[in-house]
Each structure stands twice: as structure tokens, then as C-alpha cells.
Simulated assay, not measured.
Amino acid sequence: MTRGRQIIFGLVAVAAIGLVAAWFLQSFERKAIDLPLPPKGEAVYNPLYALKVALQRERQRVHSRPHLFDDKHPLQAGDTVLILADPARLSRRESDALRAHVARGGHLVVQVPMTMLDEERRVPLLDGFGVGMHTFVDDVCLRVRTVLKAKKDHEKKNAENVMCMDRFALAKASTPTLVWGDAEGVAFARFAHGQGTLDVVASLDGARTPQLTRANADANANANANANANAAFVRQWLQPNWGRGTFHLIYASDMPSLWRLLAENAWRVLVALALCIAAWLWMRMQRFGPRLPSPPDARRSLLEHVQATGDHLYRYGRAHLLHSALRAHVLARLRRKDAIAAALEGQAQADLLAQRTGLPAADIADALRSPRPFDAKDFRYRIARLIALGRHT
């Protein structure tokens, strides 16, 4: 290849690289992207964490906890209490304490009891306010006006949808000071009680962290409409004592004891488990019968081992050991029944045993004497007489 061709190929390669670089710079744009990270710390277990942070940024005093009453943070006049739990699970003592707090100037925000979904039930906290049954609706929302800031620093009014699923009913005799609702039912009602106010909301899901995620300033307003609408709606719940006292955010006050949860939701499993345990105990229990346990059944392996041991001793000329063992067994059995006969020796013992058993005295005397060594016939004879003697003693 000549030098001129090398120069031409080099220029073509440089031109191609330049075109690719120009296309890349023209087509792609450097842009920062925010990636949501999984929650950690308090945000994991506190569903009202976003509301707590938002109130702190508004310079409000906030305390969030799982239990309703805390000695370190007592309720004062002017405080706002938001209970995420079902008010029907509150005890009479807790309900009376909350009503007294509202009467002396406090503000309480609760959701309508879910226990009223199927049947009427008196809830001590809402007794006398005329709050009726909880209902579900589909695709029917309230329109809440929000104010958004556009990119050109001017405000834009917009109406967004909230409370698209939950409603509740009010009795005709109820006298709320403020009601938000539609033809499907009531979504929000505010009642005056003593010097304070009580707010009943169809659902407090709008106060949870996912619905209150703050939108970026440069993001599209339509993409964050739900967050802005929920934030504006929740801000109206907290208006009566805004800037006066402390906001108490209770996110788990309806948590009953473990035994109550088991009794209400797992009694079928507990009954089945109790029956299984009772059946297992009945199978394993000691049966009624004699005080002494039954003797163990003979095992084939043990009998084979005993027989093999006897065969081994007999084969190696130790038959007298087998005879001595059987004679000791017969004498021990005789000692339990007739100690005098067992204490005698020789011919006197043979004569006394002959009188008791009816066997010949000569055979008894031969049975009690050791067999001659290496005499199989004499060994079998004396063993047979010992077995007969043992049966008759």
C-alpha cells in the first residue's frame, strides 16, 4: 500500500469517528435522574413518617408513636391527635380520655370505623355524633383545588381527585360544622365538641407515606397530582389547631394483645392444634393396669446370641459352666419356696426334694452333681434332670 492510500484511509477513519461523535453529542443529553431508594429506619415501620417530616418542615411540634398514651408526651389543650387505627378497637377508657381531650380544646382526627361495614355497632368514641355505616364506592372522587408553581414562577390553580373509594353516612340528627361529600356519601365531617373539634374521615390512607411523597420541583405537575391533592386534603384536616399545640401521630394504637389476636382470628387453628395434642397425649399416656410392667417380649436376636454362647462353651469343653448356671437358677428358685431344702446338701437334700417333688432321689442327686468332662450323654442327662427338678419346685 502506497503512502497516498494510507493518508486517504486515515482521513476516512477520522471523518467517520467525527461523524459518530457529532451524532452522539446531538442525540444524547446528560440528565440527572432520581432513583427511589428503599426506606430505612423509622420510615420502614411508621406509615405516617412522611406526614411527620412534612409537619417538621412547617416548624410544627410533632410526636409520632405506636401507642395512644405516653407519660413523656401527655395530651395538652390545643394538641392535635391523628389516629390511623380503627376507633372501634379503642377501649372505653381510651375513648373517654380522647373525648375529654377534645372537650378541653383539643383536635382529634379519626377514620370511620370499619366495623360498621356490615352492621350497626356503637363506638364509644363516636357515640352521639351520628356517624353511620362505612361504604365503598367506585370511580367517584372529590375534587380538591390545589395551587401549583409552574416553571415560569407563576401560580396555577388545578382541581385534583381525592377520596375515590370510601364514604360513610351521617344521621339526619347530626350537626356537623363542615361536611365534604357527594351523592355517594360523606368523605369528611367536622364536629364541634366542647371547646375542640372532632374530624371523621372516610379513610386516612391519604395521610400515609406513599400518598404524601413530595414531588420534585422540575417534575411534571400531572405526574404528582395525587400527591399534591392528598397533601392539600390532609392540610385541611390539621387546620383547627395549626401552630397552637403538638401534633400526635398515632400509627398503631389498635394493636391488641397476642392472645386477643389468636382468640379472634386463629381460634379454629387453636382448636385443631389442641385436639391433635390431646390425641398425641392419649396415645403416649400410661395405660391403667398392673403396677409392675409387663415383661419384655423375647427377642429373636437375643435368643440366638444365648444359643450361640452355649454352643461355644459346649464345643470348647466348658459344659460344666452351663450346668452350674442352670443348677444355680434351680437352687435360687428353690430357696424362694423352701429355704430349708435349699440349705441342705448331699443325700439329705436329695431325699427331701424327692418327697416334695415325687422324683426319684437318685435322679435328683445326679442332677445336682457336675457332669463328667467331654461326656455329651452324661451332660444331656443331668441337664434334663435339672430342668425336670426346676419344673417341680
Rank of each mutant, 00 (worst) to 15 (best):
A365K: 12
A88L: 01
E58W: 07
A32G: 00
R284E: 12
C276R: 07
R287P: 00
R61W: 07
H63A: 00
Q286R: 11
A171D: 15
V162N: 03
D153A: 15
N241Q: 10
A173Y: 06
T115K: 11
S301D: 14
R369S: 15
V201P: 00
D153L: 11
A343S: 13
M285E: 10
G185V: 03
H63F: 14
H320G: 08
A227P: 09
A388M: 10
A343H: 09
D338L: 08
V162S: 06
Y316H: 11
D79K: 04
R167G: 00
H320K: 02
E345A: 15
V62Q: 01
I17N: 05
R167L: 05
R300F: 04
F247E: 02
P124T: 07
Q56D: 08
P124S: 03
L204A: 01
R3T: 12
A308K: 12
R104C: 09
M285S: 13
D71I: 10
V140G: 03
A343R: 06
T2M: 00
T213E: 11
D153R: 14
A343T: 04
A13N: 05
F168L: 05
D375W: 07
F136V: 04
R336P: 04
A274L: 12
A100P: 04
V144W: 06
H193N: 06
W259Q: 14
V110C: 09
N216P: 07
R61Y: 06
N226Y: 06
N226K: 08
M255T: 11
P210E: 04
I250L: 09
A97L: 14
G130V: 03
N265C: 11
L126E: 01
R335Q: 10
R291Q: 14
G243W: 07
A376T: 07
D375Y: 11
S257V: 03
R318L: 08
G105A: 11
A361V: 02
R143H: 03
R336D: 15
I277M: 11
A274M: 01
C276F: 01
A22W: 15
Q236C: 05
Y316Q: 07
F9P: 01
A354Y: 06
R57F: 15
N241H: 05
L326G: 05
H107G: 08
R391K: 15
L125Q: 05
N220K: 05
H305A: 03
A298G: 02
A341Q: 04
R372L: 14
K31N: 05
K151C: 10
P210H: 12
D182N: 10
T309D: 02
L389F: 14
